[in-house]
Every structure is written in C-alpha cells, then in structure tokens.
Design a protein around this nucleic acid. Structure first.
Lengths: 412, 412
DNA sequence: AGGTATTTGTTCAGCGATTGAATTATTTGC
DNA sequence: GCAAATAATTCAATCGCTGAACAAATACCT
C-alpha cells in the first residue's frame, strides 16, 4: 500500500528504544486478551530478551501491569499476562456544544473513568464564561481521577466549528463563536494537566473529528477507514483513513454539510446553493416533518422525530426518507471518491438510523460504481451522546500509547 | 498533525541504519542544490560522523554521486556536493490507454531517460496482445537504459480502470477490458526487471492515480496534498494526501466522475443519475459544443475543442463553461470534504484549462466554506500526455529513494 | 607571502540497545 | 518422581550512533 513512512526526524540510538516501547505497548493495547512476553516476542518479531527489557520499562512507568495468568492448555510454565494499567496517565476530554458542556476522563485502555454533563443553552453565554464553567467541571474531574490513581497528561476540547492549528476557533456558527482564542482563555485558569514531553497540554479540534476518533477507538477490531457523520443542526464529518484522522491541509476537512446535492437548490447560509445541510440538517428535517420550530428546543428535536416515526407518523417518515436520500447522494459521492467501506451515522443521526439507513443504502447501491463487488456498511454510532468528549479524552490516552517515551522520561 | 507513525514491524538493530539511509537519501532528493555532508548533518540532526558513514554506503551502492563543489562564500574547506546518481537503479513505467501504448524509464532524480509512445486504437486489441506489444517496447527500453548505465528494478503499469490488490484489472470500460489478470499475462514473457528486496517487480494501478503521483514528483517543492483530475472519456481523480497517494480501502478511490452533480439528471452508464461524467466528460462537452461525434476521433476531440474556443466559437465556449461549472460543483464538494488547497487539471483537461478554470474557481468561491480565509489554487498539469507512464516509472524510482536498503543489500 | 580563522570531512574510543544462546523457573503429562 | 514443554531472565557479543579530537582545504587579514 503506502510506503512505510519513516519517523520524520533523525533516528538516533535512543529512538530505537522509543520505537520498540511504542511497538510493544501498541500490541498490548490491540490484543484481545492479555498477551505474555513470549506472545509479544512472536507478534512483534523482537527477541524475548528485548521484550522483557521493554516490558520492564513499561511496568516501572505504570503503563502496563501484570494480570492473573490466563488459563492455557498444555504443559509449560504459565505465562504472565500483560494489560494496560488502570492507574497512571489518562486523558481529559472537554466539549462545548450548543446545549451542553461535557467533561470526561479516559484511561489508557479506553475506559471512561469519569463523566460529567451539564445541560444548558450555551448560545447566550460568552465564550470565556462557557470555558470557565468547563474548567470548574474539569477540576472536579481531576480530583475524581486522582482518587482513582490517574494523572491527567493532556486535554482535548471539542467544538462544533472550524479550528485552526493554534487552537483559535475561527467560526462556530451554531454556537455564535467567532475568532475565540481558546488556549489564551484557558491559560488564565490554573493548569489541571501534568505536562509530559511530546504530549500537547491542550488540543482544540472539531467536534465531528473527535467523535470519529471516539468511534475508531471504541471498536478495537473494526475497520480503520470510515466516514463518521455527525448530524446536528449542522452536519459535520470525521474522516478516518488507515486508522488516522484525516484533517486536511489546514485542519478543516469534513465539511460534508456543504456538499452540493442540488446545485441550483435552496440557498444556504454558507453562501452556496443546495447544500446537504438544507436537506438533511436537523432544522430541515423538522420543518419537512411539519413541526413548528418554536415548540421544539434543539436538544429534543431528534428524540421527538424518532418518537413520531416510531408511531408511524407519515409526515415524519416522509421527511426522514427525503433527508436520507439527500444524505445518500452525498455519501455516495464520498464513497466513490474515497472508496470507504463503512459509514457511521453519529450525533443526532444515531437515533434516526433505522429510518435513514435504508434510503442512504439505496442511493449508495444505485450510484457507487464498486458497490456490486463489495458492499458498503452503514450503521449507527455505538457511542451515545457526548461522543466527541469521549473521543477527545481517548485521543489523548491514545497518544500516550503511541508515544510512551515522553511519559516514561517524566516518571523516571 | 498526525501521530508519527512508527515503522510497522519490529525495530531491530539494523533497522536503524535502514531508516537513516532513507532519511539521508530523502534529504538529498528533496534538496534544491547539492547538499554537503555537513548540510545533511544539520538538516537531519545526525552527527557528521554518522552522515559520513551513511553517505559512504550510498556512494558504494551507486545511489548518489559527488558533484563539483558548489561555489560558496566565506572561508573554510570547500564542500563536496551530493546528488542522486544518474547511473544505477531506475523505474520502468508502462501505460495502456485507449489510443496509445507508452513506456518510459525514470531515474532516481525523476528524470525521464527513455520514452516511447505507440499510437494505435487499442479497443479492438485483445489484452494479451496489447501487453505483448508493451513488453516489446519495454525490452527496447531496457536496452537503452542499460546503455545509459541504468538497471530497471521495478515496473508499474497504468490502466484506465479499476485494479485490485493482486493486479487484476476488474473493469476498464473505455478499453473494453474485464477481469484481465495482468501479472499472469506478463509472467509469460521473459523478465525485464532485476528483483530487489522490498521493491515489487510489477505494480498495476489506475491511470489517474499514477498521473497524480507523476504530478507530485514533478514539483519537488509543491504542495503535498492535492486533487489531480484526469479528464478523458471518463473522469478519474488521484488524491494525494500528505505526499502519499490515497488509494482507499480496496484501491478504488478517485471515481470523481460519478459524483452526483444533478441527482435527478441524466442517466449514467454506471446506473446512477446526474453523474459528473454526464456533464463534464469528453463526450458531453463535444456534444454540447455541437460537434458531430463521427467526425472526431477520440484523441483529437480535445485539441479541436481548444481550437474552437481559441477562435471564439460561442457554442464551444458555452459548452466549456457549463462543463467547468459542473466540474466546479463536484470539486467544491471535494474541497469542502477534504480541505485541499490545490486542484490540478490533467489529462484532456490540461489543454482546456484556460476555459475550465474560471467557472471552477467561481463555484469554489461560492460553495467552499473556508475559501474566504485561504484560497484554493486550480491549475493545469505540468506533465503533458502520457503523464501516467511517467508517474508510474517515477513511483518505482521514488520507492528506491524511500527504501534504499533493499537495493544496497543486493548490490553489495 | 604567511599566519589564522573557518568550515568540511574522517578517525576512534565509548556506549546504548538488540541479539542469540545458555540458564533458570514453573507447570503438565507419563 | 522424572522428562518434556513453555516462560522468562542473564550475559557476552555485536552493530550503529555519539562526541571529541584530528586532518584537510580554503578565505581573510596583516
């Protein structure tokens, strides 16, 4: 497939150990049952001697721990299983959305160890105040984590909008944010994170991107290339290619909501015409189903739609079918272009999947060249609400697993 | 950006040298003037001692050679510049297209050292016969290469169709190929390639993919993420992300021709409706310009269109504007999705770029969310015809540069 | 013209990490 | 109770990078 990308910089003597630490730890993380040192040796191609030395470092650094010996058949000295430590470093996930704030802590194994959600309409709240509330929640999360033996080593914040490399939120239309310098605003609060070399203290990213990462890590054995679509007021997509999030040249990939599905159709607030969002966005579906907007707060629209569809309401069913068709046209284009075999419906779409999937699949079947040879799976997200916060925290934890050397250098 | 992907397998003692060989050779290839050993040391972060040792290996293996000392200001011992060798390993590029066969040889530096084109209508020719002719041409190419001190170490074949991992051409509609087992057919001829560990003797890939790679390597300093669109009878795209071709889950990415631009529009032979190909494919443009199909062989249609447009023919101008608008709708969607900053018009589109670019840019400006902050460049391809053959050969040469260890192990 | 500063490239002892074989540890099966 | 089998550790050997000293070659200054 692709050429093996060598590490960017120089490969010095010590890099060797760093790379093998990451290799072994990654295997432990990916294994479906606790592997022994001997298993790791055969799996990685390293000698048992090297694996033992590497594992010793990992044990000393609280990244893995030895589990009860796994039952095994046949003779021989029983193996000692290795699992990711349930104490040690952990990631902090933060999310600001239109109608809630969320904070969570995820450990190395991907388990959610702490979770807080605060429901409120954030649109009238100033960005600095919203972030201050989030910091309060995060402080409590850190204490809870510390009680469980966890140290927060990095944070990721999910925002429903465009974020640049420096963490500046250029535009979050549904939140009313515009050029909000998140890192600067958060720097005014006392730090919650223990700095670790190689792990950024704070990453700000698009909500759809982080939700896609959450989906990726929630399914250790799943496909490593898929499209994750977050259907909220806006429609965003996270693109995971070969197990890595694709962010685009400037980090603004995934604006699937503005894919043209009817080029001469309804005008969109983005300035274009006939964007997907105008046909499959939450407001469009609600309007098509004949529901007055006023009677529905944003956070219950999806639930109400599902309720009506469940009851067989013809207007709701038609609205969902039409939205699914528009979504299917856009998704078919994406699949033709990127040759993905899995599409995940997340965010508000997850609850509507029973009605959205059939028309999406129909469009894919009719429009995707290669659909005949290999089918495309369309399924709802397995993570529930606040998927982005979980994905954010998980992305930090994952980073420790991918680059354990920094943490080990710190812990000593 | 993305996590530094560690090498897939184990990092053994010797991998260290392999990685540094690739690192140093890559720097030499990327430099705009011949770097000295000292330059390489500061650029890579390795010590001068290590660089000297690595360079010694590269010199012994005929991968680089010392050039005349570059003029330098200031005092000090003059440096000896290092350049990619013009003798040694080289890549063989092959292309089967609707109206020609092409063969070329590209050296490590990306220079085309041999080129043969054979014009003929390949549609009535059986696949095995077409490949046999190609092998004849390749044999002559090998002799020419040998006379220049070049050894062919791998071949890549470009085909206008869908290819699977094993090199089976599943479908090449415009060529009339269907399930053609290219590697098996070529195996019946005597081998032209000197096998090198780590370099596949034959890669079969989509023409649009390989043309995109050619474009990538023809511009050493250009962007490393772009969309390359080959506008022929069909419309294919090669997607280059972070300097690597993105092939999709099964290698069938880039089918931009079947992006829906008018979902309820003209039926397409793919079974869908309103595909881009129906509005911006060669046949659609020719028909819209009012040219009778019969009077135009496929290979001159583009030239004739450019001639008419140059002369101000209103029908041709309108046809090109409409095609450009359709193309722009599709491209705007792709840019919204992938956040690319460059779009290259290749194949038949290259000659029509003066008329296609303005409407494409107009649609991008109107539909791409982020266009206001950072502009998208749309430009014609710099490689001419047979770009795919050049890209194919270049991809092999590039692979040697990225993984020099295999060649060095062979040469001794 | 000669000396000094400066930069390039090489040599060499030292060291860290992996290797492979030998050794120890622990259990099952006969 | 003993042999076979599997797991994990120990240890000398080896490979490749490092850092510093050294040799080579040129420009600048007096």
């Amino acid at each position: 497939m692709s050429l093996t990308h060598a590490p960017a910089g120089a490969v010095r003597q010590g890099s060797l150990r760093e790379l093998n630490l990451a290799l072994v730890l990654g295997r432990i993380a990916a294994a479906d049952r606790p592997p022994s040192r001997a298993d790791l040796a055969t799996a990685t191609g390293l000698t048992r001697a090297t694996v033992s030395a590497v594992v010793e470092d990992l044990l000393a650094g609280q990244l893995v721990s030895e589990s009860d010996p796994a039952p095994r058949s046949g003779a021989g000295r029983p193996a000692r299983g290795l699992v990711l430590a349930d104490q040690g470093p952990a990631g902090l996930g933060l999310e600001v959305n239109v109608d809630y704030l969320a904070v969570c802590v995820v450990d190395l194994a991907g388990q959610v160890r702490h979770r807080t959600v605060h429901r409120a309409d954030l649109r009238p709240v100033a960005p600095a105040d919203a972030l201050a509330r989030l910091v309060d929640m995060a402080g409590a999360a850190r204490e809870d984590a510390a009680d469980q033996g966890l140290t927060l080593v990095g944070a990721a914040l999910a925002v429903p909008g465009l974020v640049d490399d420096a963490g500046l939120v250029r535009l979050a239309p549904n939140l009313g944010w515009h050029d909000v310098p998140v890192p600067a605003l958060l720097a005014e609060h006392p730090p919650l994170i223990e700095q670790v070399p190689g792990i950024p203290a704070l990453v700000v990213d698009n909500e759809a991107n982080l939700a896609a990462l959450g989906e990726l890590h929630s399914q250790p054995t799943g496909t490593s290339s898929f499209l994750h679509i977050s259907g909220e007021v806006g429609i965003g997509a996270g693109i995971v290619l070969d197990g890595a999030l694709f962010r685009g040249v400037r980090g603004w990939s995934g604006e699937i909501g503005h894919l043209p599905v009817h080029p001469e159709g309804r005008p969109c607030r983005c300035g274009g015409q006939g964007c997907l969002e105008q046909y499959a966005g939450q407001e469009a579906i609600v309007a098509a189903a004949g529901l007055a907007r006023a009677e529905l707060p944003a956070d219950t629209a999806t639930a109400r739609l599902a309720e009506l569809a469940e009851g067989g309401d013809p207007d709701a069913l038609r609205a969902l079918r039409d939205a699914g068709t528009a979504l299917g046209v856009a998704v078919a284009g994406v699949v033709n272009l990127l040759d993905l075999d899995t599409v995940v419906l997340g965010g508000g779409y997850a609850a509507l999947a029973p009605w959205l999937c059939p028309p999406v699949l129909a469009e894919i079947g009719a429009r995707v060249l290669t659909a005949a040879w290999s089918p495309v799976t369309v399924r709802p997200s397995t993570l529930g609400a606040e998927a982005a916060a979980v994905g954010a925290a998980g992305s930090v934890a994952r980073r420790i697993v991918a680059q354990p050397a920094g943490w080990l250098a710190r812990a000593g």
